[in-house]
Design a protein around this nucleic acid. Structure first.
Lengths: 250, 250
DNA sequence: CAAAATCCTTGACACAGATCAATCCTGATG
DNA sequence: CATCAGGATTGATCTGTGTCAAGGATTTTG
């Protein structure tokens, strides 16, 4: 798997890993459309913790995450923060038709994004209906994810929230998954306790305590601060409060 | 203002109130496109409390709320419920490209919906790009609303949640607004305490208590169970925890 | 290698909101 | 007009999570 530390040069020479082509936007593009996308595209990389744009800032591009993880967050006047989007590789950032970002966009890990200047991208959308269609599909998926997230925030206990987050990350980012064998699954958690707490609507202390509980009960095994092994994925699933037959992410 | 009790006949004879034409889908449609929409459209009405579709049920139509209020909710195995969508007149229901509903759809008040059989609607979307574009816009707006809602669920206090809900309803459904004069604003709350609690991720007792508090402090005045007057809208706004210059809904 | 900086863990205690339970409206029904 | 039913209110108590605070582990810096 391509690492976040791979130089940009790699991508400029051979864009075959670029998700905007292959998964996000242009799976059905013809050669000349790819050519046009190629012309308006550029890469940016960010270090873990770096802010990509602040809420309210002008945002003259749309982008797709190539490697790493980015987050969307909202902040209240008194500093309370809530994450409202978690962007994994191939996820799309930016809203055509809006000049400024409504959220803080932050790189949670070292991140590479494939950016398109907004104006030419919007022009291209007009002439290429399936890009718009693809964008609609992606937006509907994000809306479903947001609604699942609302259930988590509104009704789940701290323990259920943690279990849910772990299963969501394990399922969504296959690239994190280092090993899978008869129900065992192992990966590096790409979020700090603080980022987890912002995702879950908890304090970082509660996150830490619940992680410890899951550890003591053998539902997860930790190695260092970030590496996590889930010995029995199904057993963890039972702690999420979700229907056993899985939701939209299955 | 057209009432929820207006007979369907009114609409079949003259669809000028039908929001699917005017606001939701077809603002830019030509005559022959309107003609085609007309052919695949039908109306359904529901009484307050009635379920429109259950989560997981087959849903062979998409629709637009004409009058009344509908809700989307998720239920956990043990009965915990979280509302994830509040649909006011002109709002759109149903996801093209998905056969079943992911949520319970319920009529919160007496409701009339303008429905389109899904297959012909999807066919029409393919030939009429601006319908897809409009749908993308609407979906992006819903996503923004969902994210604002996530902040509410994850980080706001019960008091802030109530104040937020009141301002959201007051702003979103102009039809509810009976009187407006120098900051005073009056409307019929279209939700029961229970529905409010499902929206806010609270129990109905907490909703009731916080409503009482706001009443005692003069932030709201109630008349009967549902009628609410907000003597000073800006003062209530200060209780929401939101930035004073308003969010996306302004 | 020491010092500093992050990030994480754990404990003690407080409190907002949940739970359980009783009562009160208000409009509908006979 | 009395009764009933569904919603709303209020009270007493409990509990999960937040808050405040101390300390530990790991990585970075000089």
């Amino acid at each position: 798997m391509t690492r976040a530390t791979t130089s940009l040069k790699t991508y400029n020479q051979d864009c075959s890993d670029c998700p905007i082509r292959h998964r996000a936007v242009c799976a059905r593009c013809e050669t000349d459309e790819l050519e046009r996308l190629e012309q308006i595209k550029y890469y940016r990389s960010f270090e873990a913790g770096q802010t990509v744009v602040w809420a309210g800032d002008n945002m003259d591009f749309v982008a797709s995450v190539v490697t790493g993880i980015a987050t969307l967050s909202q902040t209240m006047e008194d500093g309370r923060r809530q994450m409202v989007g978690l962007l994994l590789p191939s996820d799309f950032i930016g809203r055509p038709g809006r000049a400024t970002s409504a959220y803080d966009v932050t790189a949670a890990t070292d991140t590479v994004m494939c950016c398109f200047r907004k104006k030419p991208f919007e022009d291209m959308m007009l002439n290429t209906p399936h890009i718009g269609q693809r964008l609609l599909e992606m937006t509907l998926d994000e809306l479903d994810a947001a609604r699942e997230w609302m259930l988590l925030l509104g009704r789940k206990t701290a323990r259920e929230k943690i279990a849910s987050l772990l299963t969501i990350i394990a399922r969504r980012d296959a690239s994190l998954q280092l090993s899978v064998a008869d129900g065992e699954l192992s990966f590096d958690l790409p979020l700090t306790r603080e980022a987890m707490s912002e995702y879950l609507g908890l304090t970082l202390e509660t996150v830490s305590r619940q992680m410890s509980n899951l550890r003591k009960e053998g539902l997860i095994v930790t190695e260092g601060k970030r590496h996590i092994t889930i010995p029995d994925f199904d057993r963890l699933l039972e702690e999420t409060g979700d229907d056993s037959d899985g939701g939209f992410l299955m």
